[in-house]
């Protein structure tokens, strides 16, 4: 009886686990291996090469003409920029998303449903198209630029192809990822706690700071992870709204697997991206587990 139930469960799970392992687990493993190899003369992977950390070293150092290893800041800068962009976006999403989530939770049932739908829709609509919409708004011959040029006396304004444009695009892309987990916390919130805080002499602002925010912390953490991680690997936004000087990790990976055709190096960059992501998630998990027992 027990036996057959377990077998049935396994059979039902097999397709899902099979697909995920074969099409996600195996490729990632393969990529880890390839990141230790070298590219072949024909721009493919040299499978015969003995594995080494060359690609990882190349992220930081390069050989100069005399064969000495010198520091190469190109990729370091891109790493730093990616992390910074992701952090700034996360912060922007938090600042914009928290009030929305809080306000939504206070609405009537119908109001909450409508808002939920309004926030969910961008979450599911085409990322490419939504970034393209910003391209139209911010472009040089658009009316936004024209209006700003009238108002701004110090020379022409350039709205596109800079870090700010990328930050706007990323915030726009991932804001729902912040609002939804925050909302799900506030929805279950016990509002009598605020009553208690007010009763104990707190002002609304202080009640917000001392009661609401600490209790919303799990939602803030979840939302921040949901924004930070995809930002780190963003490709479309920097590709459309950014310029040559605003490349992020995603652009490097795409370039290595595309025009530059250095797959092992691209694989190494991808692995580093995964590693950063894992580190952030582990840090969050550790921090949460240290907070949990009380």
């Amino acid at each position: 009886m027990m036996q057959s139930a377990a077998v049935r469960q396994l059979v039902l799970l097999l397709p899902a686990l099979g697909v995920i392992v074969l099409l996600i687990g195996v490729p990632l493993g393969l990529m880890g291996w390839v990141s230790l190899l070298e590219k072949s003369a024909s721009a493919g992977v040299d499978w015969q090469a003995s594995p080494g950390a060359g690609n990882y070293l190349r992220l930081v150092w390069e050989e100069d003409f005399d064969g000495r290893m010198i520091l190469n800041p190109t990729y370091l800068v891109i790493f730093l920029r990616s992390v910074l962009q992701a952090a700034v976006t996360t912060l922007l999403c938090l600042v914009l998303g928290l009030p929305v989530a809080l306000w939504m939770a206070g609405l009537t049932r119908t109001g909450r449903m409508v808002m939920l739908l309004l926030v969910t829709i961008p979450f599911w609509t085409n990322l490419l198209v939504r970034n393209y919409a910003w391209l139209i708004i911010l472009r040089e011959d658009g009316w936004t630029t024209a209006v700003l040029n009238r108002l701004w006396p110090f020379g022409p304004v350039q709205l596109l192809y800079n870090d700010a444009a990328v930050a706007i695009g990323l915030t726009y892309s991932f804001l729902p990822f912040m609002i939804l987990p925050l909302y799900s916390v506030f929805e279950k919130f016990d509002w009598r706690l605020i009553e208690a805080a007010l009763d104990l002499g707190a002002t609304r602002r202080r009640a917000l700071r001392r009661v609401v925010l600490p209790l919303a912390l799990p939602g803030i953490v979840a939302g921040s992870l949901l924004v930070f991680i995809p930002c780190l690997g963003a490709f479309v936004t920097p590709a459309l709204l950014g310029g040559g000087k605003t490349a992020m990790l995603g652009n490097v990976i795409q370039a290595q697997f595309g025009p530059a055709r250095n797959w092992p190096f691209g694989a190494a960059v991808s692995i580093v991206l995964l590693a950063i992501m894992l580190a952030v998630m582990t840090a969050m998990a550790l921090w949460r587990s240290r907070r949990a027992p009380r």
């Binding site: 996600i24 490729p27 990632l28 393969l30 990529m31 991680i229 995809p230 780190l232 690997g233 490709f235 995603g250 990976i253 795409q254 697997f257 691209g266 694989a267 991808s270 991206l273 995964l274 992501m277």
Partner: peptide, 9 residues
Amino acid sequence: LPEIVVAVA
């Protein structure tokens, strides 16, 4: 997982 990583893998 970041989609770009899975895609290139």
